[in-house]
Simulated assay, not measured.
Amino acid sequence: MNDVTPRRVTSADVARLAGVSRATVSYVLNNTPHQTISASTRARVLDAAAGLGYAPSAAARTLRTGRSDVVLCLLPDWPIGHEVGALLAHLSAGLDQAGLTFLAHPGTRRPAGHLWRSINPAAVLAFRRFSAEETESMRAAGVAPVVAPLSRPGTPEGPQQRIGDLQAAHLAAAGHSRIGYAYPDDDRVRGFAEPRLEGVRARCAERGLAPPQVQTVPLEAEAAAGAVREWCAAGVTAVCAYNDEVAMAVLAGARRSTDEPSSLAVIGVDDIPAARLAEPALTTVTTDRATVAAHLVAAVLAAVHGEPDPVLDLADAIRVVVRASA
């Protein structure tokens, strides 16, 4: 049995099938401006390329245009759950529509410079601030640095603070004056947990309420029950949880530790599919992932073309989904 590697389809193959020159194929597939190519010729080229499964070489395109079409996304060492996965899916689709290739790289110990230099992307999207040296190096290489606004510790009005603020505001409006905060048992998400907690603290202070009583809650019912008992002993009647998974751990702990588990109000974050199946169904704060992804795509395109950063309207992107738990 012969083990023959299939030959890569080239632009010459597309040109031969479409009955045009390779230059015409290049003009059509790269949307080259100021070319007088008829609609019928353009259609023949596109049909031939699709029929052959032709994909232009990224390396050749970089040499030809001086710019890669890759957007390298440097993911921190995060658990890739429903929220992050959905955001990445929207982001990939949005960049694809813009003619860019999305490449996500999960947390690594390698310096970021090693990654982007080996790929030579059009842009690097990160969820932390770049150092001045990193920014200068990327720009000198023609790579656009982009920082996502999802987790920027130290910014008083960031998205994560807004999430915590909405959680506490919802509970306070329902008449709860003693609020707990269920902190995650996972150091990888500290960059999200801390600003969310700050948002809860700020809203409690604004309402004249006591600071939230913080308990670390593992994703384990018996351990969560211990946290619930401490909250109840301290007079806490409602809990803001770091996310929906932690919130469901609190609900499970309440069922184990109190005679009336429904007396403890709980609000989560993310609106994962299981939130509506919890008992009681979980009230939560959701972020419109499509809106955030569209903002990130716009931010990447602006950075690549040297235009000002777009502004993300948090009022449209983040809201409370009210169910039975709070």
Score class of each variant (00 low, 15 high):
Ile37Tyr: 13
Ser38Ala: 11
Tyr54Ser: 08
Arg152Phe: 13
Asn30Thr: 01
Ala274Met: 07
Leu75Ser: 03
Asp309Met: 10
Ile267Asp: 05
Ala144Ile: 02
Leu125Ile: 06
Glu198Gln: 13
Ile179Tyr: 04
Pro184Asp: 12
Thr284Pro: 01
Tyr181Asp: 05
Asp185Cys: 14
Val45Arg: 03
Ala193Val: 06
Gly107Arg: 04
Pro56Arg: 01
Ala234Pro: 13
Val45His: 03
Val143Thr: 04
Arg289Pro: 12
Val84Glu: 08
Ala247Tyr: 01
Gly94Asn: 03
Ala238His: 00
Thr108Trp: 04
Phe130Ala: 02
Gly19Val: 13
Ala303Thr: 08
Leu87Val: 07
Ala123Tyr: 00
Tyr27Arg: 04
Asp259Ala: 15
Leu219Cys: 06
Gly154Pro: 01
Gly81Leu: 07
Ser40Leu: 14
Leu17Ala: 05
Leu171Asp: 03
Ala144Pro: 00
Pro121Cys: 03
Pro280Phe: 14
Phe192Gly: 03
Ala86Cys: 10
Gly107Ile: 02
Ala104Asp: 01
Ala290Gly: 14
Thr283Gln: 00
Ala324His: 14
Ser263Leu: 07
Thr36Arg: 15
Val147Asn: 05
His305Arg: 10
Thr286Lys: 12
Asn2Phe: 14
Asp185Gln: 15
Ala172Asn: 09
Arg109Glu: 15
Ala241Tyr: 01
Trp116Tyr: 07
Arg22His: 09
Arg188Phe: 14
Pro218Val: 05
Pro195Asn: 09
Ala93Asp: 15
Ala168Leu: 01
Pro156Tyr: 15
Ala141Arg: 05
Gly208Trp: 02
Val28Pro: 02
Glu83Ile: 10
Leu314His: 09
His90Ser: 13
Asn120Leu: 13
Asp96Thr: 14
Ala299Thr: 09
Ser263Cys: 06
Glu222Leu: 13
Gly51Ile: 05
Leu251Ser: 00
Gln35Val: 11
Glu136Asp: 14
Ile179Glu: 01
Ala252Cys: 14
Arg67Asn: 07
Thr135Gln: 11
Asp271Lys: 08
Thr216Lys: 15
Pro211Ser: 15
Gln215Ile: 00
Ala225Lys: 00
Arg203Ser: 06
Val143Phe: 03
Val147Met: 11
Ala123Gln: 00
Ala238Gly: 02
Gly268Pro: 00
Arg16Val: 11
Glu230Trp: 08
Ala234Gly: 11
Val304Gln: 05
Ala224Thr: 04
Leu251Lys: 02
Ala238Ser: 01
Ala60Trp: 04
Arg190Lys: 11
Tyr181Met: 10
Asp69Asn: 15
Arg67Phe: 12
Gly66His: 06
Arg207His: 15
Pro79Ala: 09
